[in-house]
Design a binder for these strands. Structure first.
Length: 450
RNA sequence: GUGGGUAUAGCUCAGUUGGUUAGAGCGCUGGAUUGUGGUUCCAGAGGUCGCCGGUUCAAUUCCGGUUAUUCACCCCA
């Protein structure tokens, strides 16, 4: 008999975990709703043509492909098969793949339903995504993403609004965080004044590693990526700047850079008139973010007092729907890393003990006659709205009591000959151990109050 | 994709410098307690020591391969 198992990078969740995870999702969802975002869902599977080429060459390798049904080999590309060329064969044996993120399916959704949507379209989406990455701590092949985006408006109000959403969610979850803001236009400006506009991506990838490898590490990375010493020196000076007004001087020669500074200033102005935020919101010039479709403001959230990567991120993208044929639709959105938020809350012990209320009252019967009587009482309790249950057979008390204990039932009602005769049932408080005798209606009434 | 660790009871892990009957804690079952759980005590069940091969009189132990898992890197949530 072989032991059952689940695929690499996937997990089972027990009742306790599901309750905690739902607490996170419910909190996030309620804030999204308050800010007037609407929920959508997209299929688990997308056409592979929708997904491929959207995440770079690395991303394509991490896509889960779904094998075609039927005699897929008969229709396979024989030439590619002969050459053992996996990449070529795939396109002839697989036409669908699992969702890799929520942003690309959302872009597809917007394009397909553009005539039914009122812009600006504010949507949120909480669904699973899959990546064939090698699993490691806090990284799985199947995980949830919680995305909130607004498309069809350039208004910087939304950058401020998304910052407020971050602030409000993490305040509600009681996780102290630092929300970092930057603007890709500022980074473009740095590349411009350093004279390496054509190596912009190399520069951002290197800068993104700053808090991990330090300034020396970043400089090494820049050298390795073939960036000249003069440019590196310039980048280093600019990266040391902490406030926006000073940055204007350094970026005076870059129109794009100045635009980025102005945009950020406006976002901060909005936040200032909003009545303030709970968490720290800071401009961080070293924030880069790997994804290259971002074109304006970028966001990242780091939990304080924990060793953990970012627990949220996002930004503005000027042309997300362009690849699907809809031009000039700007969007801005952020994502919550639910799995990491869970780990942080676990580490900081932030989950409320509200716990498992799945069983409030368990009936226990001593014999078959009492069991039938108890089943009647059970129906009354359920009708009154209590989460109640009856042990399925009148077996040994020890066994039944142990079940009540394991299920963390706060109350137990014991029913035997005496109880049936008098109509007064034994209600036991499992925590204190005290026992009282009451009629079933009185028991229900009392528990509904507690 | 690259590199390391680990694999022994349902779970978490000891252990065997290669030797006859394989160890603990927790959990499970039964009993002490015939109408009372969480504490305690007693007893019991449960293992092809991941899989394949090599060395050896003898391998769970050493070696090689393989699979699974885990950690780190690339990348990312």
């Amino acid at each position: 008999m072989s032991k059952p198992s689940i695929p690499k990078g996937t997990r089972d969740f027990g009742p306790e975990e599901v309750i905690k995870r739902n607490y996170i999702f419910d909190t996030i969802r309620s804030v999204f709703t308050k800010y007037a975002y609407q929920p959508i869902e997209t299929p688990t599977m997308e056409n592979l043509s929708t997904l491929t080429g959207k995440y770079g060459e690395e991303g394509d390798k991490l896509l889960f492909k779904v094998l075609n049904n039927g005699d897929f080999l008969a229709k396979a590309n024989k030439e590619a098969l002969g050459e053992m060329d996996s990449v070529k064969v795939v396109s002839s044996i697989s036409k669908r793949g699992l969702r890799y993120d929520l942003t690309v399916p959302f872009a597809r959704f917007v394009v397909m339903h553009q005539n039914d949507i009122s812009f600006p379209f504010k949507r949120y989406q909480i669904q699973r995504v899959w990546r064939a990455d090698r699993p490691q701590k806090g990284r799985y092949q199947e995980f949830y993403q919680c995305d909130v985006d607004v498309v069809g408006s350039n208004a910087l109000m939304y950058e401020a609004e998304l910052t407020q959403i971050y602030d409000e969610v993490f305040a509600a979850l009681k996780i102290p965080v630092e929300i970092k803001l930057n603007n890709r236009k500022i980074l473009a400006g740095i590349a411009e004044v350093a004279g390496i506009t054509n190596q912009f991506v190399d520069m951002t990838v290197a800068i993104d590693k700053l808090d991990k490898v330090g300034m020396e590490g970043v400089k090494n990375e820049l050298v390795n990526r073939g960036i000249g010493a003069d440019a590196i020196a310039k980048i280093e000076t600019v990266l040391a700047i902490k406030d926006l007004s000073q940055l204007k001087i350094q970026l005076a020669d870059s129109e794009t850079g100045l635009k980025g500074v102005e945009e950020l200033e406006q976002v901060f102005d909005y936040l200032a008139v909003s009545g303030g935020v709970t968490n720290e919101v800071n401009f961080d010039i070293t924030l880069a973010r790997g994804l290259n479709y971002y074109t304006g403001c970028i966001f990242e959230v780091k939990a304080k007092n924990v060793q953990m990567g970012s627990i949220g991120g996002g930004g503005r993208y000027d042309d997300l729907t362009g690849v699907f044929g809809l031009k000039n639709v700007s969007g801005v959105g952020v994502s919550f890393g639910a799995e990491r938020i869970y780990d942080v809350m676990q580490e900081l012990e932030l989950f409320p003990d509200s716990a498992d209320a799945s069983l409030q009252l368990l009936f226990i019967a001593f014999d078959a006659k009492a069991h039938a009587f108890a089943f009647n009482c059970l129906a009354k309790a359920r009708k009154a709205g209590l989460n109640a249950d009856l042990y399925p057979e009148p077996t040994k008390l020890k066994k039944q009591m142990k079940y009540a204990n394991d299920r963390k039932a706060p109350y137990v009602v014991l029913i035997g000959g005496n109880e049936m005769e008098s109509g007064l049932l034994s209600l036991k408080d499992m925590e204190s151990g005290t026992q009282t005798t009451l009629a079933i209606d009185a028991i229900i009434e009392q528990l509904l109050k507690s």
